[in-house]
Amino acid sequence: MRILDQSRFFSSYQCDGSRCFYIDFNHKTVKMSFCQLLSFRQKLLNIDLDSHFNGENSQGIEILMLCNKEHLFIFNTLEILDLKKLLNNTFTALEINSMIAC
């Protein structure tokens, strides 16, 4: 397993053997196909962080279901910020890897 990115709370890996990705959520590691990773990324992109600060989502809690509702996570504002960064950096790492490959 190769590490793709490590943020303050989480890390992401790629496994060549199983052609899968892993996200380490600290207490739990989730295996994801590329398609599931894309969907996770999309869910994070859709989270409107402004709502955490303008009172709309005063608790600052986000509930995310991953991998077709197999996993359920509850994140606070700080963790969401961290995850957004993780996924962004993970896809940058993947893009750099694609560039090296060609």
Binding site: R2, D16, R19, F34, L45, L94
Partner: peptide, 18 residues
Amino acid sequence: MKDLVRQNLSIHVEIMDL
């Protein structure tokens, strides 16, 4: 490291977003 993105996706991720 294998290019798993390319194995799965024929188009660029950011183009997919657009």
